[in-house]
Amino acid sequence: MAEAPPRRLGLGPPPGDAPRAELVALTAVQSEQGEAGGGGSPRRLGLLGSPLPPGAPLPGPGSGSGSACGQRSSAAHKRYRRLQNWVYNVLERPRGWAFVYHVFIFLLVFSCLVLSVLSTIQEHQELANECLLILEFVMIVVFGLEYIVRVWSAGCCCRYRGWQGRFRFARKPFCVIDFIVFVASVAVIAAGTQGNIFATSALRSMRFLQILRMVRMDRRGGTWKLLGSVVYAHSKELITAWYIGFLVLIFASFLVYLAEKDANSDFSSYADSLWWGTITLTTIGYGDKTPHTWLGRVLAAGFALLGISFFALPAGILGSGFALKVQEQHRQKHFEKRRMPAANLIQAAWRLYSTDMSRAYLTATWYYYDSILPSFRELALLFEHVQRARNGGLRPLEVRRAPVPDGAPSRYPPVATCHRPGSTSFCPGESSRMGIKDRIRMGSSQRRTGPSKQHLAPPTMPTSPSSEQVGEATSPTKVQKSWSFNDRTRFRASLRLKPRTSAEDAPSEEVA
C-alpha cells in the first residue's frame, strides 16, 4: 500500500521540484479525499487562508506561464504608474523644462484676455472677434484635454484613487474654476456660431469669465498662502490700524457733515460726507466734493493729517511682513540645501571615528588635552595620597570615625582645627580638600554678606603664586578674593596644593 505523501509545513519547496517556489498556508490543510486516503489533490490556500480556484496559477517567480503573465502585467503596471506620476508632476508640480508648457498656457490665456479687451473697442471689434473665435476653439481643445489628463493623473495619489477620489480631486477650487471656464468657452462658441440675436450679448458677457483663467496660473496657491501667512502673522497690528482709521473716518465725516450741510449742497446727507471722507483719507482725492466753510476746511485738514497716518499703516505693516517672510523662506531654502550635506558629513565622520582606533588626527579633542595637561583624576589621586601619608595610611573619614581611648597616647600629631565659614567644625583632613566650587561659593557668600568690609582692609600687593609662602596660607580663606572669576591669580592660587600645619609646630611643606 502506497504511503501518503508527508504533510509539508512552511514555505519550503517540495523535494524533486527545486526551481518551484510555492506559497503554502501556515497550517497544512488537505482535502477530505486526501485525509481519507483517496487520490485527491490537496486544496490550495492563499496567504489569508482563502481557498484558491482550481485553475488559478500559483503565485511565485517560477510558476510557469502564469508567472510570465504576472511579470508582464507587473511591468506594465509599473510603467503605467510611472507615467501617471510623471504627468501629475508636470501639471501640478512643474520643475525644470516642465515650465515651458505652463508658459505656453499663460501666453494663450493672456492673448485671449487681450483680444477680449480689444473686442470692446469699436475700431478693432470685428478683427478681434474673428481672432478670438479661432483662439477659443484652440483653448477649448487644449483645456478640455488638460482637464481630463489632470483628473486621470491624480490617481497617482492615494487620496485621489478610484471614482470617489477623482470626484474629490474635481471638487478642488482650481478644478472648479477650470470647469466653469470650459463651460463658458463652449457656451460662447455655441452662441457665436448660431448667428442669432443673442450671440452678441452672450459673447460680450461670458467672454470675461475667461479672466478666471489668470487665476489658474498659480494652481498651488503659493501667492495666496504667502499673503495669508503675512496677514495672520500681523493680524493684531492690522486690526488696530484699521480700527483707529475707521473711527477717524466716521468722526471726521460726521463733523464735516454738521459744518457743511447748510452751506454746501455736496454734503446734503451723511452718506455724501462718508464718501468724501473715504476718498480723502485714502489719499485718492477725486475733487467732486470739497468743503466751502472755514470750519469745514479746518476739520477736514486736521482729520486728514490724523487719519492718513492710520490708513497708511497697513501698507507699511504688510510690506515689512512680506520682507520678513521672504527672508525666512530664503533662510529655509539654505537650511534645506545644507541639511543633507551636513548629515552626510556627520555620518562619514562617525564611520571614520568608529573604524580608526588610533585617531591620531583628533588634535583638538579632550583626549588630546588630557594627555598634555594633568587630568583631574590625577589631581584627586594626588590629594588622596598626600592625605593618607599624613594620616598614617588612613583616609580622612576613617580618621574622624576612629575612637580614641581616654589616657591613651595619640598616634597622630595634634592638628589645628579649622572652621569653614557658615558651618560647624569639620575634620581637619578636609581643609585642604576644598575644591574650586567651594572656594568660589565661599567668595560669593563673603561678597553678599559684607562687601563694604573688603574695601576697608589695607590693599594687598598682588604677587605671583611662585613667590607666595606656603606656610602662610594655612586656610583657603587666605586666598585673595576677587569680584570676578576671570582673575588668573585667584584661579592659579585655588589650584595650588595647600599643606596642613599642626598647632604646635607648623613646618612648611611643599608638595611638588
Rank of each mutant, 00 (worst) to 15 (best):
residue 1 M to K: 12
residue 1 M to R: 02
residue 1 M to I: 14
residue 9 L to R: 14
residue 41 S to F: 14
residue 50 S to C: 12
residue 51 P to T: 10
residue 64 G to R: 15
residue 83 L to R: 11
residue 84 Q to H: 06
residue 87 V to D: 10
residue 88 Y to D: 11
residue 88 Y to C: 13
residue 91 L to P: 05
residue 92 E to K: 11
residue 94 P to H: 05
residue 95 R to L: 11
residue 96 G to V: 14
residue 101 Y to S: 01
residue 102 H to L: 03
residue 108 L to R: 02
residue 109 V to D: 02
residue 123 E to K: 13
residue 139 M to K: 09
residue 140 I to N: 08
residue 142 V to D: 10
residue 147 Y to H: 10
residue 150 R to W: 14
residue 152 W to G: 08
residue 152 W to L: 02
residue 153 S to F: 06
residue 154 A to G: 03
residue 155 G to R: 02
residue 160 Y to S: 05
residue 162 G to R: 11
residue 165 G to S: 01
residue 169 F to L: 15
residue 169 F to V: 08
residue 170 A to P: 09
residue 175 C to W: 11
residue 176 V to D: 02
residue 178 D to N: 02
residue 178 D to G: 15
residue 179 F to Y: 05
residue 189 I to L: 07
residue 191 A to T: 10
residue 192 G to A: 10
residue 196 N to I: 06
residue 200 T to M: 13
residue 201 S to C: 11
residue 204 R to H: 08
residue 207 R to P: 11
residue 209 L to R: 01
residue 212 L to P: 09
residue 215 V to E: 01
residue 218 D to V: 09
residue 220 R to P: 05
residue 220 R to L: 11
residue 221 G to V: 07
residue 223 T to N: 07
residue 224 W to G: 07
residue 230 V to M: 00
residue 233 A to P: 03
residue 234 H to Y: 10
residue 234 H to D: 13
residue 234 H to R: 06
residue 235 S to G: 08
residue 237 E to A: 07
residue 237 E to K: 02
residue 243 Y to N: 13
residue 246 F to Y: 03
residue 246 F to C: 09
residue 246 F to S: 10
residue 246 F to I: 11
residue 248 V to G: 07
residue 248 V to L: 09
residue 248 V to E: 04
residue 252 A to D: 14
residue 253 S to F: 05
residue 254 F to V: 14
residue 254 F to L: 13
residue 255 L to P: 01
residue 257 Y to C: 01
residue 257 Y to S: 04
residue 258 L to P: 01
residue 260 E to G: 06
residue 264 N to T: 07
residue 264 N to I: 05
residue 264 N to Y: 02
residue 264 N to D: 09
residue 265 S to C: 13
residue 267 F to L: 07
residue 269 S to Y: 08
residue 270 Y to C: 02
residue 270 Y to S: 02
residue 272 D to V: 03
residue 272 D to N: 08
residue 272 D to H: 06
residue 273 S to L: 01
residue 274 L to F: 15
residue 275 W to L: 00
residue 276 W to C: 04
residue 276 W to L: 01
residue 279 I to M: 07
residue 279 I to N: 02
residue 280 T to R: 07
residue 280 T to A: 09
residue 280 T to P: 01
residue 280 T to I: 09
residue 281 L to W: 05
residue 283 T to I: 02
residue 283 T to S: 09
residue 283 T to N: 04
residue 284 I to F: 05
residue 285 G to D: 02
residue 286 Y to F: 07
residue 286 Y to S: 02
residue 287 G to C: 03
residue 287 G to S: 01
residue 288 D to E: 04
residue 288 D to H: 04
residue 289 K to E: 04
residue 290 T to K: 10
residue 290 T to A: 10
residue 291 P to L: 03
residue 291 P to S: 03
residue 291 P to T: 07
residue 291 P to Q: 03
residue 293 T to K: 01
residue 293 T to R: 02
residue 296 G to A: 04
residue 296 G to D: 00
residue 297 R to G: 04
residue 297 R to W: 01
residue 298 V to G: 09
residue 299 L to R: 01
residue 300 A to P: 00
residue 301 A to D: 01
residue 303 F to V: 05
residue 305 L to S: 00
residue 306 L to P: 15
residue 306 L to Q: 05
residue 307 G to A: 02
residue 311 F to I: 09
residue 314 P to S: 00
residue 318 L to R: 11
residue 319 G to C: 15
residue 321 G to R: 13
residue 322 F to I: 13
residue 322 F to C: 12
residue 322 F to Y: 08
residue 324 L to V: 15
residue 325 K to N: 09
residue 325 K to Q: 10
residue 327 Q to P: 10
residue 329 Q to P: 14
residue 329 Q to H: 09
residue 330 H to Y: 13
residue 331 R to P: 07
residue 331 R to Q: 09
residue 332 Q to H: 14
residue 332 Q to P: 01
residue 334 H to R: 08
residue 334 H to D: 09
residue 335 F to Y: 14
residue 335 F to V: 11
residue 338 R to P: 06
residue 338 R to L: 10
residue 339 R to S: 09
residue 341 P to R: 15
residue 341 P to A: 12
residue 344 N to Y: 15
